[in-house]
Design a protein around this nucleic acid. Structure first.
Length: 557
RNA sequence: GCCCCCGUAGCUCAGCUGGAUAGAGCAUCGGACUUCUAAUCCGAAUGUCGCAGGUUCGAGUCCUGCCGGGGGCGCCA
């Protein structure tokens, strides 16, 4: 059992102890078995209304059937047991609703909790998971056959944020960008480029975007060999992507993993993976092709690994790549894919399992698409057709911070409609600026305090218990106490958008506090100290949220 | 035909493992700058949670069916 690291975890622990005390008192032993899962279900959360107290717990609702007593009565007794443990730190409690236990905490408890958050400093909210994992997150992986469009931007922002979150939560995270440079598409790209260069019509199944012209110019049109031309173009496109990703504030990838490398060496990674599958009897030959029995692992049909032409399929490469990651010791693999790849989830999972992988350790996260809306009409972005908004365009239009916020403030499994005109018009109203503004405002207050009493004095301040706290102070303290759980919860759910939602809430909480409570020159030393501490922790938490989202946290605006 | 995602306020979307009177931003309307940043704040208005059943103390949340939108189902990548 890990040591409770935050005030809220402490409080929840007290509730659990009080609950087991009650359970033990009436237990004949059989309750203990169920207690572990029951404990996990016990919540301690901010109730929907202020008059329901600071926190409320469902513990009594869960305990009632065990004790065979009415929930409200159990809540009452649980409250009494808790009161005994917490003493004056718990001002009062109430049994309410169907059997919730509402807790009204004393200001002294809040002050103590704030002090602990302040003490944690930069590591406030950082995780120390029971089992830190070596995680590989693969994202973007845009085909190097054209510039990155807004769909890739969404993938990039999401993957990057998730990596930051996992890392902050204590995992060891590596980032990779998988480059499909081995297939026929590179040749196709080369053929398209050659056609453009010599003024011939581009092949039907080739690439048609206007970017081809620029690309021809960059990689030269002298080369006759389409494959060579294609490879040169891939290099150039990757360089462009690298720069776009940097502009999106995506942290450096640890590695660009090239599909072609999976085919180099004797034996190659692909050959080794296929041999392993064959040895295990997972494959068979039919109609001149080599098939994988993915149906044995829940797929609707078996899949081809090697075509009758002798060429390997994309799946074969992918299997080798994921096996390679496993061999490199990654306990968890996360892939961020576009919605157009969801049909591959089952087959890759099946293949992963066939090779002895634990499917639980392979997370294939599907991003829903970004639709382009023009004049009220939806248009799907297509690289082949050359219709898309590029990352670079988006950044020019609304800027990195607004773009990242826009893409990350929605759940990854909802489709985003992007209306550039609207986005441009709304970028000034983007809530990201509200959050950044709160941060800048705090910086300004702290700077003022530092000017008056010195930076060291501001840094050394500690929130002493005082009464009464202003309601806005109480609200803000509680928001800040929720921070560690918000971060770990969002990370576990792979949901950066929750960080965005929380950051906005926090900024609102701070703004209300700022409105109601004078900080510098608050009157008494105790009050000013407390409020400075509140500012420091607020600034830190907001900055952390923004950082996790890959958004800047300006000191002034 | 099968599979996946979505359907919540005028618009864009949150709503966690089922919990109390369903929320936020934007837009709209009315107010507030002598004060640590007005990129701010205060107030008002806004709902058949797509529809119909079911599960239970309790359903926006879970199950079934239907309707609507999007995506995917290849020896393409």
């Amino acid at each position: 059992m890990s040591v409770p690291a935050t005030p809220l975890e402490d409080l929840r622990e007290s509730v659990l102890e009080a609950a087991s005390e009650l359970a033990r008192a009436s237990s004949n032993g059989e309750h203990e078995r169920a207690s572990a899962s029951r404990r996990a279900q016990v919540t301690l959360e901010a109730p929907p209304r202020a008059d329901f107290g600071d926190y409320s717990t469902n513990a009594a609702l869960l305990l009632a059937p065990v004790l065979g007593q009415p929930p409200r009565e159990v809540a009452q007794r649980l409250g009494a047991a808790l009161q005994e443990r917490l003493g004056a730190r718990l001002e009062r409690f109430e049994a309410a609703g169907p059997g919730f236990l509402n807790l009204f905490l004393a200001d002294s408890w809040l002050a103590g909790a704030l002090a602990r958050a302040l003490e944690a400093g930069q590591s406030y909210g950082a995780g120390e998971p029971a089992q830190p994992e070596l995680v590989l997150i693969e994202f973007v992986s845009a085909n190097p056959t054209g510039p990155m469009h807004v769909g890739h931007a969404r993938n990039a922002a999401y993957g990057d944020s998730l990596a930051r979150m996992l890392s902050f939560c204590g995992h060891q995270v590596k980032r990779e960008f998988y480059v499909n440079d081995a297939g026929a598409q590179v040749r196709k790209l080369g053929e398209s480029l050659r056609a453009v260069a010599v003024g011939e019509p581009v092949p039907e199944d080739g690439y048609h975007g206007a970017y081809l012209l620029q690309l021809v110019h960059l990689v030269g049109d002298a080369r006759e060999d389409p494959s060579e031309l294609g490879r040169a173009a891939v290099g150039e496109l990757l360089a462009q992507m690298h720069s776009s990703l940097g502009a999106m504030n995506v942290l450096e990838f640890d590695r660009f993993a090239f599909e072609s490398e999976l085919y180099s060496g004797e034996p190659s990674a692909v050959e080794r993976a296929l041999a392993l599958l064959e040895r295990q009897g997972r494959t068979y030959r039919s109609e001149g092709a080599l098939w994988l029995r993915t149906t044995e692992f829940g797929d609707d049909k078996d899949r081809v690994l090697v075509r009758s032409s002798g060429e390997h399929t994309y799946l074969a490469s992918d299997i080798a790549y994921h096996e390679d990651k496993r061999e490199r010791g990654f306990a968890r693999q996360i892939d961020v894919w576009g919605a157009d790849h969801h049909g591959y989830v089952r087959r890759l999972k099946a293949a992963f399992q066939a090779l002895g992988g634990d499917p639980e350790r392979l997370e294939l996260l599907i991003m829903q698409l970004v639709h382009l809306v023009q004049a009220g009409e939806r248009a799907q972005m297509s690289k082949r057709a050359g219709e898309f908004v590029t990352v670079d365009q988006l950044l020019v239009e609304i800027g990195t911070d607004a773009a990242r916020w826009y893409l990350l403030s929605r759940s990854h499994d909802t489709t985003i409609d992007l209306d550039l005109d609207l986005a441009r018009r709304q970028s000034n109203e983007n809530p990201v600026y509200y959050v950044q503004y709160a941060h800048a405002r705090i910086a300004s207050v702290l700077a003022k305090a530092a000017a008056e009493r010195g930076e060291d004095a501001v840094a050394a301040v500690s929130p002493e218990a005082r009464e009464p706290l202003h309601p806005s102070e109480r609200t803000l303290v509680k928001l800040l106490l929720a921070f560690p759980l918000e971060v770990s919860g969002a990370t576990e759910k792979r949901a950066p958008h929750r960080i965005a939602a929380y950051a906005l809430e926090l900024a609102q909480g701070f703004s209300a506090f700022y409105r109601d409570c004078r900080v510098v020159g608050a009157g008494s030393e105790a009050v000013e100290s407390f409020r400075l501490a509140l500012c420091t922790v607020s600034k830190l938490a907001i900055a952390r949220c923004l950082d996790l989202l890959g958004v800047s946290a300006p000191e002034r605006m």
